[in-house]
Simulated scan of single mutants.
Amino acid sequence: MATIRDVAKLAGVSTATVSRVLNEQGGVNSETKQKVLDAIKKLNYKPNTIAKNFRQNKTDTIIVVIPDITNTFFSKILLGMQDVANANGYNVLLCNTNNDVEKELEYIRFTERRGADGIIFLTARVNYTNILELTKTCPVVVACEYIDNLDIPTVSINNFKAAYEATEYLIKLGHKKIAYINGPEGIVLSRDRLRGYKAALERYGIEIDEKLIFEGDFYYESGYKHAKQILENEATAVFTASDDMAAGFIRYCIDNNIKVPEEVSVVGFDNIKLASIIKPELTTIAQPMYEIGTTAMDMLIKLIKGEEVEKRNIVLEHQLIVRESCMPYEKNCVKSKGY
């Protein structure tokens, strides 16, 4: 089925121009208008009447679907979204899924049934077909990750590169037995971070030891849970896919009289506020959380207004923040026994 982007590409114009022709708005000269009409006829493009009516009946409401409202990682992202939305006259409706795919589907059905001017997913867990269908009803943006094989606007960092740099930092400190606690299997950012971790080891000729790779869930408890086995496997450093998991790992070390970083170095991911509060302060990958929020919301509002979005997959810069939780391997103390 042809889309408005297909029409725009064939006619050699922007999607905003196609939208103006379809809605019989001014500002399009007769020659350009005819190119658009010819492309529509050739592609047998049929405008979505639901979407058209939807756009003509603004709700001034944007839905943001969040996997876990208690996760502090999302707080600055939501603040950025709220600031941009309010500045443009939109209200934000937060929909918390508690990482439940069925709840996410419910919010999609709610949006299709009741209407909203647009929707942002802070990660998406549902079948891609559901999101694709939703795009026929309203503009959609995905923040924090991307969706394979779907042309949906996204805002994220380069998770592969970030994980590579975190692992490389530990390698350059002299560590070779580096454990990794990943996020849930099947999530695109978990996949990319695991690839980055493995790529760094391979680049420096360090054998990948599957016994040092663990699946977590981004939460404190899974960092604590995997710590015992990591230490029993004599890892001298640990990289975790979230700061919460790093904090859980450090807590286990404290409970068992294992010194960080003297006996084991730790790197986290996200740079939430906790990273600079815990002792030792956590070395981590900083995501530009507020900027992710403002960029995603700005993109969505442009789509709602029918404006052209020049860059549909925006990758923002991350940063390795070096604090107190890592130490060169040669300076590490002899490890304690009885983990």
Rank of each mutant, 00 (worst) to 15 (best):
K35E: 00
I187R: 14
N158D: 13
E102N: 14
T70A: 03
T15D: 08
K335I: 06
A51R: 13
A2D: 04
N99K: 15
Y169H: 14
L122S: 12
A275K: 01
K337S: 13
I62D: 01
T72A: 08
A51H: 11
Y290V: 03
T294F: 14
M1S: 08
E317P: 01
G174T: 05
E24S: 15
Y45N: 00
D38Y: 05
A275H: 02
I250N: 08
L316S: 05
P153D: 04
I4T: 10
K176E: 15
V309R: 11
D60G: 02
I304E: 03
T17I: 04
E232H: 13
E262W: 00
M327I: 07
R55F: 14
R323F: 02
R109W: 09
V264P: 01
N44G: 08
L274H: 00
P67A: 12
N256G: 10
N23Q: 04
K273P: 05
T135N: 11
A163L: 13
P328W: 06
C253P: 03
A247Y: 04
S30C: 00
D6S: 04
R251C: 01
L105F: 15
F218P: 02
V140S: 05
N71Q: 11
D60S: 13
T97E: 03
K331G: 08
D192R: 06
I157S: 06
T135K: 11
D298T: 14
K225Q: 10
D243N: 03
K198E: 15
S276Y: 04
